[in-house]
Each structure stands twice: as C-alpha cells, then as structure tokens.
Design a protein around this nucleic acid. Structure first.
Length: 415
DNA sequence: TCTGGGGTCCTAGGACCC
DNA sequence: TCTGGGGTCCTAGGACCC
C-alpha cells in the first residue's frame, strides 16, 4: 500500500523580480533584472530572451536590449518571503524552509481541518496572491523529490498534484536535469551515454549508472528515478559551515593588497559565529585567479575559533601559501573564507586556551582574551548602531562594492 | 561570454593508529 | 623486514543548489 501525496513544495516565481513588479506596477509585463554588473534575478519576460541569474549585466543587455535594471529592495524580499512561507505554516508546523523563497511542508494528518493536500495547495496559492500580491507555484506529491519536480513543472504560477498511482508515468518522460543533483556536468555525462529522460536513467543496466557517475551519486539518482526518496520534512537544520567571499575584479596577488579584504571577510564570518555562540575548527580559504580557476587551502586546529583577529591571521597565512604554490599567477579575482567543523562555543573559555599566532599558544593567553573581549565589545556596538558603525581599521575600508551588503545578508543562512 | 554570494555533499589520497 | 586489513582524520578539488 503506498502512502498519500502529503508533501508540498512551494516556490515563489522569479521572486526578486516579482517583488519589484509588485512595488512598481509600471514594471509589470516588462523584462527586468535586479542588479547591475551582475544579474541577481530576472523576470519571466527577461528570461524569455535568455537572461539568467548570475549572468553579467552586459551580456544580459546584449540578449535583451529592452532590459531594465532595477536596484533591489532587499528588506522587502525578506519581509515578503517570510510572509509567504508563513502562509504555509498556518496549515502545518512541519515546514522546512530551503531558502528565502522556497519551502517544503508535510500536511499529513491535517485533512480533517483543511481538506486534502491539493486543496491546501490551491488555498496557499490564492492567499499568497491575494494577501501579498505574489505568484507562487506549488507541487504536491508523496515524496519531497517528486513534489519539488512537480512545482518546477507547475511554473510559472501553477499547481501540479502527482497522483501516487501514477508517479512513474509523470516522472519518467521528464528530462534528467529536473532531478535534484543533476547539473550541467552530470547532464552532459548522461547525454553522452544516450540518457536524456529520467525513464532512460531509471532503466540503465545494473551498475552502469554508478560506474558513470560514482557510487554515491549513481545510487542516489537511481533511487530518485524510481521515486524512492526516503527524506522527511525536517523543520530544523544545523549549519555545517559559515563563509564569506568577495569578487575583486583584478587585484595584485600580494599580501598588502589583499589584507584589507581578508580582514573584511574574517570579520563577517567571525562576527556571525560569535552572534550565535559558535566557533569552528577548520578554516578554508578560496583564491580565484584572473582566469577564473580557483584553489582552496585549509587548516584544522584543535579547538574552535571565533575571534576576528585569529581568523584573519590564519586566513592570511593560507592565502599566502596558496599564492606561493602558484607563483605564475599575478592577479586574484576572488577571495573567500569559510569556517567549518562548527561547535558550540563555551563563551570565553575556549578562546582563552586557543592561541595560534606565536606566543598565543600559551594556555590562558592574555592576548587571546583581550581580542575576544574587543570583538564582543564591537559586536555590542553594532547591535545597537548597525554593522557600519564600527570596524577594525583595515577591515572597515576593505569592503568591496560589488554587491550590496543587504544582498549578502539575505543569502546568509541562520546558524 | 568570461560571472555574485552563501551553502551542502562526495571523492580520493595520504597520514596515522590499532 | 615485509606483509595484511580496517578505521579515522585531514586536505584539496569538484559538482551542485538557491
């Protein structure tokens, strides 16, 4: 006996662009892009010309000369995204938020209150449209994977309910790239093997999928293609890493030039960690060169880090090591810092014992304590007066201008 | 045609331990 | 001295997602 189709996947359509069209109705029906140098989001009218998120603004304009660029209203995205997901939450507490504009919900056991899942989905769509003015597509199915595919098929502004008796009939004719985990590389590998549809993937001879894509991915896709998706909707997720990066155009590949950016990034990451009482044991830096090739270097230390200064020093050492390994590269186009192996931070204690730069190895280092206290004092000022109010000298001027700070904050996941 | 920022997961080799 | 096997951790790279 198979279960019922109780999983909803709700996804706001072209979210940022739809909000802009809501705020300024003269943009309705127009090809618009949020952003400037780079397209952060494009309306469906712009997508019809091939404009896509992440595309260079110049390229987008070539594809669509009528394209209008608008600067983003990021606080409105936050408010409206929260409100839309909040509508789902009025039907069930079992809501798993995936991003600003997307969530799963499990409506098992709510039928006596609100009717069958398809009715709930229609109601969610109507309410988001009536109360917030935004289009949202919803997929309903027995598994998360199928619900997600259904919402993609439903777009724009649609609803698709997959009958549990006809799941494979629905799934197998669809192209493989609709599956979660199939991107451009995997799609191309499958195409080389003559596999275009999910049904073809499902029927590949035993073992050939694993040989083509590796054990884990092969197994996973094989299961998904037969709609064996064991994942449940969970309401809470634990973050595994925290990071920040900045594109730099072209900067000279030397420590003096890069130090302010390293400070800026370390400050962002470490203050987010401290805000939630986390620390991390592994520091990873990413250096992208002018030709867009990139490398990473990482270091794992015995106990967690959350002080800006210590993180910045480790990151700088790693960046220097990376540059030393590539002496022919003379310019850097992006720097990133990320901290993983997160652990709960026991206030001051670990930081006191930490110490990584020279004499700080001594337990109970006064320098470590002083740094931690200075960081906390700065965090407190920012809490009252905002992030821009105060910063370490070099970090505060190191902020690159590529993307608004509000966009960074919108993309952050809560720890 | 040269693209932002914040994330997750997988692979593979090497070090190290038992 | 060379040989086996298994497990864990770290590092680097890569694909993918929103």
């Amino acid at each position: 006996m198979i279960g019922d189709a109780n999983i909803l996947h709700a996804d706001l359509d072209a979210f940022y662009a739809s909000v802009e069209q809501l705020l300024d109705p003269s943009l309705l029906g127009q090809p618009i892009a949020v952003g400037g140098g780079v397209v952060l989001a494009a309306s469906y009218e712009a997508r019809a010309f091939g404009v896509r998120g992440g595309m260079a603004g110049r390229r987008a304009l070539q594809l669509c000369p009528e394209l209008r660029f608008v600067s983003g209203h990021f606080s409105a995205y936050r408010r409206l995204g929260d409100a839309a997901i909040g509508v789902l939450g009025e039907f069930t507490p079992s809501v798993e938020r995936i991003s600003i504009d997307e969530a799963f919900a499990d409506v098992s056991g709510t039928e006596h209150l609100f009717g069958p899942p398809g009715t709930i989905a229609a109601c969610v769509r109507r309410r988001v449209r009536d109360e917030l003015g935004l289009p949202i597509s919803v997929g309903v199915a027995r598994t998360k994977h199928l619900a997600k595919i259904a919402s993609q098929v439903a777009k724009p502004d649609g609803l698709v309910v997959v009958d549990p008796e006809r799941e494979l009939e629905f799934l197998h004719p669809l192209p493989v790239e609709l599956m979660w985990g199939v991107g451009p590389v995997t799609k191309a590998r499958l195409a080389d093997a003559g596999v275009i549809t999910i049904g073809q993937l499902a029927n590949m001879p035993g073992g050939s999928l694993e040989r083509l894509l590796g054990q884990a991915i092969g197994d996973k896709l094989g299961a998904l293609a037969w709609n064996r998706d064991p994942r449940r909707v969970h309401t809470r997720h634990r973050a595994r890493s925290v990071g920040a990066q900045s594109a730099l155009g072209r900067r000279a590949a030397d420590a003096t030039t890069l130090r302010p950016t390293i400070r800026f990034l370390a400050d962002r990451v470490a203050s987010r960690l401290r805000a939630k009482s986390f620390a991390g044991r592994t520091v990873t830096v990413r250096v992208r060169f002018a030709d867009l090739s990139s490398i990473t270097r990482s270091l794992t230390v015995p106990s967690g880090i959350s002080a800006t200064g210590i993180l910045a020093e480790i990151a700088e050492e790693l960046v220097l090591a990376a540059l030393a390994d590539h002496p022919d590269e003379t310019s850097v186009s992006l720097l990133g810092i990320s901290v993983s192996h997160l652990e709960r931070h026991q206030a001051l204690q670990l930081q006191l014992e930490l110490g990584l730069d020279g004499d700080q190895r001594l337990p109970g280092s006064r320098k470590g304590a002083a740094r931690w206290l200075a960081d906390r004092a700065m965090d407190a000022v920012r809490e009252r007066f905002g992030r821009q109010a105060i910063g370490y000298g070099s970090a505060s001027v190191g902020a690159p201008r590529s993307v608004p700070a509000a966009f960074r904050e919108l993309a952050e996941r809560t720890l």
